[in-house]
Amino acid sequence: MRKTTVYDVAERAGVSTATVSFTFRRPDKVKPATRERVLKAARELDYVPSANARGLARGKTGALGLYSFDMLIERPQGSDLEDFATEDIFERPDVLVYPLYADEVQRGFEVECWHRGQTVLLGTAVSKRDNGSITDIAGRVDGLALFPNRGTDDLPLARLCRSIPVVRIGETDGELPSADVICDNEGGIAALVDHLVDVHGVTEMSFIGELATYDMHRRFEAFQSRAAERGIAMGRPLLDDSTSFSREWLVNLCEAI
């Protein structure tokens, strides 16, 4: 069955294609009687306006993109940490389990776009060097936000920043012409150290995690600085590659704290 076009609607309603376009894009610019005639013809022909065509007419798509790698790095529920440490993080993704912050950021992004009347286009890498999918989504949106991850190391970010506005979440290096949204790592870590010292009387601390992202580096540096200010002993300040620790070890650590 042939798809109904704007030309079919224009012929049925006895108007120009420009009038049909204005009826859907700028209904306030079309006379009520004419607008109703166009809408009636569209209903009779089951016509659905093309978002791509409207975007070409305006020079904008009306959509913003959110690109993420983080949905692909979590282990399946119930698996052991030792097993996860040997897995290829892009080999068998479980998109039902991923960091909570990614879910919260995505929800906030969608809600804000809803308030502003903009569409959200979500994109996810299928491999570590999946440049094609991010350039594809970038070509269909007016702006792009992306989560940090080692998977972004090979992305053509400089080229993307020259074509559309790019926002990086939790990452910055000062070299790219992008907008960077980062959290108060120093203040948060200082508050945590102070809480452990003042409330729980902790006298020795270590930092668990690998320094793979901008945020983790800043948090570790802030931890070292604040711990030194509070006179905290740091026999092993950095316990790197947290996936090497067993589930039992982590449970015991949390119970001890």
Rank of each mutant, 00 (worst) to 15 (best):
S50G: 00
E74R: 10
P148W: 07
L239T: 03
R92M: 04
H217P: 06
R230P: 00
D154Q: 14
T61Y: 05
T213K: 05
E44N: 00
G123D: 10
F245A: 00
E82S: 13
F84W: 15
D46T: 07
C254T: 07
Y214K: 01
F207C: 10
E255R: 15
V120D: 07
V167A: 14
F69P: 03
K60N: 05
I189S: 01
S16H: 02
T86Q: 12
F22S: 11
V197N: 05
M216E: 13
D180L: 04
E110A: 06
D241L: 07
F220S: 03
R247D: 10
N131F: 02
F223E: 07
L211F: 07
L144I: 12
V111P: 00
R230E: 07
E255M: 12
R247V: 00
F84M: 11
P76A: 11
G78S: 08
R140H: 12
S246Q: 02
D142N: 11
I164Q: 00
S21Q: 06
D240P: 05
D184C: 11
I208R: 09
H200E: 13
S50F: 01
A41P: 02
G55N: 06
L146W: 01
I137N: 00
R116G: 04
Y214R: 02
F223G: 13
I134P: 00
D70S: 14
R218L: 13
D130F: 01
A41W: 02
P177V: 06
A222F: 05
F220V: 06
L157P: 13
S21N: 12
V181Q: 07
S68C: 09
G231C: 05
V20I: 09
S21P: 04
V111N: 03
V126C: 10
G59N: 11
Q118L: 15
Y101V: 14
V193C: 06
A63T: 06
S178K: 04
D153R: 10
E229P: 09
G132A: 12
G201W: 03
E11M: 06
E171P: 01
D184R: 08
H195M: 13
P49I: 08
P237K: 00
L64F: 11
G188E: 09
E11Q: 11
V48C: 02
S242P: 00
L45Y: 04
S50D: 00
P27Q: 09
R129P: 04
E87H: 11
C183I: 14
R12M: 14
T135Y: 08
S79C: 10
L81M: 09
L100C: 05
D80G: 13
